[in-house]
Design a protein around this nucleic acid. Structure first.
Length: 552
RNA sequence: UGGGAUAUAGCCAAGCGGUAAGGCACCAGAUUUUGAUUCUGGCAUUCACUGGUUCGAUCCCAGUUAUCCCAGCCA
């Protein structure tokens, strides 16, 4: 695996060397209200790998301070995703585990005159907050006595007020140019049942107040988050200091990772699922970890991708090509390489006996002998790929079958095309060939070189199969699609289905097994596959394709 | 428009005062029973721009420009 190396690691090394910390402790803090996607994978992998570098620890802490939309379903899914990526947290905990301790710290701030109960309505609070260019105005409730605040806050907890009636706010500076410092809300009233604490609480702490305290309670040394929290760091530090936390955690930010042609926002992903535009969160076109897994991605490929892509404070958009590369790289030696024909063209070997099938030895992966060999069938009737035949060789680069030319059928014989049959539209429906028995694979025959090597499947023994070809769910922003909603821009051809044939050795293939089909890329057996109707999901394409019409 | 962050090739990304790492993509050639893989070579005289300091600047300073984030009782 690639060695992790980024600016956060440099910071950690220095902190350790300077004796600022004795052990690195990080945390991955998802809110349990969505499925994890490739963007989260970046946080997970960096959190865990950085700690691992220094024999540190990493906690999985569910940030469940807003019971609306949060739930058990997501908690379990996130734990499963982490397991799939190969990470075991040193501690699994919840923000709600600290509700009591967090409440006590709020009391402390009230007693220090640094927090107050506010009666302002939501609309008024917005007005009092000011704008980006104008300072805010102090709330008329800002100078309540400590006793009054203590009393009111306790009554908030006891459920004496309705949602939105009161809030607890930190008393900082309404004229701060950093809007986060303009008396941020610490607690709001929500008469909502929490998935873990049920109805015990009706006031819930806000992220800005809860998060730094949780980090401090757990002894987190390096609290890593994305760059949009940069503006929150002064507040983070303010709460840690004013709450007199024994342990002082520090927040560091990195840029978000986007991938070309990929929708990553929680809101959009939810819209896709709820609007039935995709099968579910594990639809192979989704950038969720479960989706990538079902499409055929391996955790190793995702890790390598993240580590090689690096980390900086810039929000970046990486070409999806990079993701594909690391999957190809991982699968190269793992995948079995059987024959599959996606767009079949019939071939008949005129000089081969009727009703005879020959079973030939074929290597599963010539670069990895450990994957063994299998038997493939050869007979009078074959299927080849339509793209592999052209009546006339139109240019020097053409390395496939044409009339009068000879090609090697992989793992089998040389065949020569002699004539074709066509339908009423002039399309080739059958190619008449002859084979040369002397050219059998492995015989060492080298008297003449074929025009190329193509793959095939024997017609009578092959199995029918369905191939799922996935394209990006959305188009790039173009002139025509500009201004359209995201749903309107959905790629109508994001899922193409092809029906073809695979060799008989795939009769007992298992879900999740990877195959590389020659010139068609890598495929993974989908969970819906049954022997009678094999289903393969394309995981990624090969590196380059050849278009006979555009090459000279 | 106030504050903050960022700017290195088509895309990521090292570099932290001594003369531009690496990966993807791309191009050329060799090998090849996959037009894949593998191998070999090529790919920033310049670091958003303009000045300044310095023997010397991607790096320090000043100004300019561009992009992103912040006005939830979301996280």
């Amino acid at each position: 695996m690639a060695e992790i190396n980024n600016f956060i690691k440099t910071i950690m090394e220095k902190d350790l060397k300077d004796g600022k910390v004795n052990q690195i402790v990080t945390r991955f803090p998802p809110e349990p209200n969505a499925y994890l996607h490739i963007g989260h994978a970046r946080a997970i992998i960096n959190d865990f790998e950085l700690a691992k570098c220094f024999n540190g620890k990493t906690n999985l802490r569910f940030d469940d301070t807003n019971p609306v939309n949060e739930g058990e379903e997501y908690v379990n899914a996130i734990i499963e995703d982490l397991k799939w990526l190969g990470y075991t947290p040193d501690l699994i905990c919840f923000g709600s585990d600290y509700f009591e301790k967090t409440y006590e710290k709020a009391i402390l701030l009230i007693k220090k005159g640094l927090a107050y109960v506010d009666d302002l309505s939501q609309d008024d609070m917005t007005k009092y907050r000011g704008t980006l260019t104008e300072p805010g105005i102090n709330s008329p409730f800002r100078n309540r006595t400590i006793e009054e605040n203590l009393n009111l806050f306790e009554r908030m907890r006891n459920g004496e007020f309705k949602d939105g009636e009161k809030t607890l706010r930190a008393k900082i500076d309404m004229s701060s140019p950093n809007i986060n410092m303009r008396d941020p809300v610490m607690y709001r009233i929500l008469h909502v049942s929490h998935h873990r604490t049920k109805d015990k609480w009706c006031i819930y702490p806000m992220y800005d107040f809860a998060h730094p305290l949780q980090d401090a309670f757990e002894g987190v040394t390096h609290s890593l988050c994305s760059i949009e929290y940069d503006n929150h760091r002064p507040l983070y530090d303010w709460f840690v200091e004013k709450c007199e936390m024994e342990h002082v955690p520090h927040q560091y930010e990195w840029g978000r990772l986007n991938i070309t042609n990929t929708i990553m926002s929680k809101r959009y992903l939810r819209q896709l699922v709820e609007g039935n535009y995709v099968i579910g969160y594990d639809d192979p076109r989704m950038p969720t970890l479960v989706g990538l897994k079902r499409k055929g991605f391996t955790p190793e490929a995702i890790k390598e991708f993240i580590l090689y892509t690096g980390l900086s404070r810039i929000n970046s958009t990486t070409d999806a090509e990079n993701l594909d590369y690391f999957l190809r790289e991982d699968l190269k030696l793992k995948a079995i390489r059987p024959n599959a024909i996606i767009n079949p063209l019939k071939v008949v070997i005129d000089n081969y006996p009727e009703n005879q099938i020959e079973w030939l030895d074929a290597s599963n992966n010539m670069e990895n002998e450990q994957l063994g060999t299998r038997k493939i069938a050869f007979g009078k009737y074959l299927y080849i790929e339509q793209d592999d035949f052209m009546e006339e060789k139109i240019n020097k680069k053409w390395k496939r079958l044409s009339l009068g030319l000879e090609v090697r059928l992989m793992h089998a014989y040389f065949i020569k095309a002699n004539s074709v049959e066509k339908d009423e539209n002039g399309n080739v429906t059958l190619v008449h060939c002859t084979y040369d028995p002397k050219t059998k694979s492995g015989s060492g025959f080298d008297e003449r070189k074929p025009n190329g090597t193509i793959h095939f499947v024997e017609a009578t023994t092959s199995l029918k199969a369905t191939f799922n070809l996935f394209n990006p769910l959305i188009f790039d922003e173009t002139e025509e699609t500009k201004g359209q909603s995201f749903i309107e821009r959905l790629n109508k051809n994001s899922w193409e289905i092809k029906h073809g044939y695979v060799e008989s050795s795939l009769a007992d293939c298992k879900e999740g097994t990877h195959y590389q089909f020659v010139r068609n890329g890598y495929f993974c057996v989908d969970k819906d596959s049954k022997k009678s109707n094999l289903i393969f999901n394309r995981t990624c394409g090969l590196k380059s394709s050849f278009n006979p019409n555009t090459n000279n």
